[in-house]
Simulated assay, not measured.
Amino acid sequence: MNRVISLISLLAVSVGGFAQSTSEKLLMVCGDSKVLLVDYQQGQDSIPAVVWSWDAHEAMDLPTEYRTRKFNSMDDCKAIRQGEQLLVSSSSGAIAVLNRKDKKVVFYASVPNAHSIELLPGDLIAAAASTAPNGNRIMLFDQKHPEKPLYSDSLFSAHGLVWDQQRKSLFALGLTVLREYKLVGTKALKLVQEWTIPGHSGHDLQPTPDGRHLFLTEETGAWQFDLKTHTFTKIPGFTDAPHTKSVGRDRRGQFIYTVPEESWWTYHVRFQHPSHALSFPTMKVYKARWFRP
Rank of each mutant, 00 (worst) to 15 (best):
Gly253Asp: 09
Ser14Ala: 15
Pro198Val: 09
Lys78Thr: 07
Lys144Phe: 02
Ser263Leu: 12
Asp226Trp: 04
Ser279Lys: 08
Gly93Asp: 06
Lys228Tyr: 10
Gln44Lys: 15
Ala79Ser: 15
Phe255Ile: 08
Ala129Thr: 01
Gln193Ile: 00
Ser201Asn: 15
Pro63Glu: 02
Asp142Tyr: 00
Thr22Gly: 15
Ala129Lys: 03
Gly16Thr: 08
Gln272Tyr: 08
Asn136Leu: 01
Ala12Phe: 05
Ile95Leu: 03
Lys287Glu: 13
Leu87Gly: 09
Pro48Trp: 03
Gly16Val: 06
Asp32His: 07
Ala19Phe: 00
Ser6Asp: 14
Gly221Arg: 05
Leu98Thr: 02
Asp102Ser: 04
Ile256Phe: 07
Ala59Gln: 15
Thr258Leu: 03
Ile5Phe: 11
Gly202Met: 01
His213Ser: 09
Gln82Tyr: 04
Ser92Ile: 04
Gln272Lys: 09
Ala288His: 06
Ala114Glu: 03
Ala94Thr: 08
Lys187Met: 02
Pro198Met: 09
Thr208Asp: 13
Thr233Tyr: 03
Lys34Trp: 15
Met1His: 12
Lys168Ile: 00
Leu175Gly: 10
Ala172Pro: 11
Leu170Gln: 08
Glu118Cys: 11
Pro149Trp: 01
Gly160Ala: 05
Lys190Asn: 13
Asp39Val: 03
Leu62Ser: 11
Pro242Gly: 04
Val105Trp: 01
Leu98Gln: 04
Leu227Ala: 06
Val29Trp: 06
Lys103Ser: 08
Gly83Phe: 07
Gln206Val: 05
Val4Gln: 15
His200Gly: 00
Ser275Ile: 07
Ala96Arg: 05
Val51Lys: 12
Ser53Lys: 07
Gly135Met: 10
Val51Trp: 02
Arg251Trp: 02
Gln85Asn: 11
Leu214Arg: 05
Leu87Trp: 09
Glu58Gln: 14
Arg251Asn: 12
Ala127Thr: 07
Leu87Gln: 09
Glu147Asp: 15
Phe171His: 11
Glu262Lys: 14
Ser90Trp: 02
Gly248Glu: 12
Thr282Phe: 07
Gln44Trp: 08
Phe215Glu: 01
Gly93Val: 03
Met60Glu: 14
Phe271Val: 06
Lys103Glu: 11
Ser90Leu: 03
Glu65Trp: 00
Gly202Ser: 07
Phe156Met: 01
Leu124Ile: 06
Ser6Val: 06
Ser110Asp: 14
Ala132Glu: 11
Val184Met: 10
Tyr257Val: 03
His243Asn: 14
Ser89Met: 02
Thr244Pro: 10
Ser14Met: 01
Leu86Pro: 01
Phe255Lys: 02
Asp55Gln: 06
Ser110Tyr: 11
Gln143Glu: 12
Pro274Lys: 03
Thr266Asp: 05
Ser33Trp: 08
Ala94Ile: 06
Tyr66Cys: 01
Thr196Ile: 12
His200Tyr: 13
Thr244Arg: 06
Gln165Trp: 00
Ser157Gln: 13
Thr239Leu: 04
Ser91Thr: 13
Asp250Arg: 04
Leu170Thr: 08
Glu147Cys: 04
Pro274Met: 00
Ala79Tyr: 05
Thr22Val: 10
Ala79Met: 12
